[in-house]
Amino acid sequence: MSNLLIRTEQLVAGWQQPATAPLDLRLSSGQILGLTGPNGVGKSTILGALTGRAKIFSGEIDLRPNLRLALQAQDAPPVDGLPLSGKELLALTGASPEGLPPWLLERLDQRLDRLSGGQRHYLSLWAILQAPADVVLLDEPTNNLDAVGTEHLAIALRQRVAHGAAIILVSHDDAFVSTVCDQVLVLKGASHVG
């Protein structure tokens, strides 16, 4: 397939030891792929393997040459006590503020550590989601978001892939995953249900 961006074959990844069952995955541009499953099946580890941080124990990963990835990890960025404004955060990753909800747009000049936890999370997420990248990897993006934020995120994800990017989304939020994803892989430790 000409617009295939990522392919894994029987991928087993982990940190010190194997943490996932063999995974076959295909991701093309314009697609949102959801990875779900209980804690400990290695959802975040898969994202780590795709970015080259986690170790590949067996199988393989094929990335399209010169593929640009952007990763939003679960951990909140350490911005407490740091004089960094929202506008500066977006400039760091090259993300455009266009499309941000009004409740964040009007606070872009404020320091991040003066924003609420939800506002800070959404802005950190936005900085990655709108960064120049072919594939955006999101790890539990709906954490800390209220219903309005979650709804806005769903629209933003669809708009992002409409412009040619692809997204892999790790989430425990089944309702959100089923709403926004084109394809869902449920990781169960030993096998995956497509």
Binding site: G52, L71, A73, A91, L92, T93, L137
Partner: peptide, 16 residues
């Protein structure tokens, strides 16, 4: 910019 990215998004360099 690079030092801020390394601190705020430590996975940025790996991902790119």
């Amino acid at each position: 910019r690079q030092l801020l990215l390394a601190r705020i998004y430590p996975d940025y360099f790996h991902a790119q």
